[in-house]
């Protein structure tokens, strides 16, 4: 692989990193339908299960209004999935993450 190709790879990575918003998350296209902001939902989730958010998603799922923020929160070597209703801010789930 020549220098030109390596430079292209570098540019690609740089462009990807630059365009990646720190708040980018799956389901952000549904954000316009949510009354609760990601930050508010995140605050509620962290009050429910204090720790470090390692994944976040806005998804359509049965329960509550049908649109929820799901946070994976890690604390004390255990990950919990905390679901927050995107319309009301209600806590819909707070369970140990079964995908681990």
């Amino acid at each position: 692989m020549n220098i030109k190709n390596i430079a292209m790879i570098g540019l690609l990575i740089a462009a990807a990193m630059a365009s990646l918003n720190a708040q980018a998350y799956s389901g952000s296209e549904y954000e316009k339908d949510a009354k609760i902001t990601l930050q508010n939902a995140r605050d509620i989730a962290l009050k429910t299960y204090p720790g470090t958010v390692v994944d976040q998603e806005l998804e359509h799922k049965l329960g509550g209004s049908g649109l929820r923020y799901s946070f994976d929160i890690r604390a004390h070597h255990v990950t919990h999935e905390v679901g927050i209703d995107a319309q009301t801010g209600a806590v819909l789930a707070n369970n140990r993450d079964s995908d681990e």
């Binding site: 990807a16 990193m17 390692v54």
Partner: peptide, 14 residues
């Protein structure tokens, strides 16, 4: 752990 969310976001995005 402090970088977990950013790494996951980058993985999903890419």
């Amino acid at each position: 752990l402090p970088y977990a969310l950013k790494i996951k976001s980058l993985h999903t995005y890419l």
